[in-house]
Amino acid sequence: MSRTADLHADVGEVLLTEDDIRAKTAELGRRITADYAGRPLTLVSVLKGSLPFMADLMRQIDLPLRIDLMEVSSYGGTATETSGLVRIIKDLSASISGEDVLLVEDIIDTGLTLNYLVRYLRGKNPASLRICTLLDKPARRLVDIPVDYRGFEIPDQFVVGYGLDYSERYRNLRFVGVLRPEVYSEAG
């Protein structure tokens, strides 16, 4: 299919292979299972980018758990319009009060979204709230938030694949790769 060929061609370098991701996800799952030691756990994931990681990670955690999904609006304001405030597009479907919650993220870069979500979730009085991310891009961190479970620290490059998108594309790639700059330069 030509679309698949285009997707692969747009990626300049494969940063993490499917095997890398699988191995790391299994490792994180073992750590989480050990740390929570039989306590029930609620995984909260943020649509849409975290979906593949969440799906793989939950199957590596040997605990009684439930999952929930959230979606928040992304900044898209321009100089000519009011950008407003971040909105919860999809809220949690059940209460997390008194529960151990693990927030599952695909990538943390500036930390702006995560900072917002952490404050939002803390307001719902969970027993504990920890953070797990597959990718961490610390070079671009604006808001420092302690990360409890980190898969890979990656360089400051624009990455796509395994849930991560550019203009809603490339999410279905099985690996994480660096998008060729000309792809987004051409697009403007």
Partner: peptide, 9 residues
């Protein structure tokens, strides 16, 4: 500033 405001920082 708009971005920070958007994310309630």
């Amino acid at each position: 500033a708009r971005i920070l405001t958007y994310y309630d920082v």
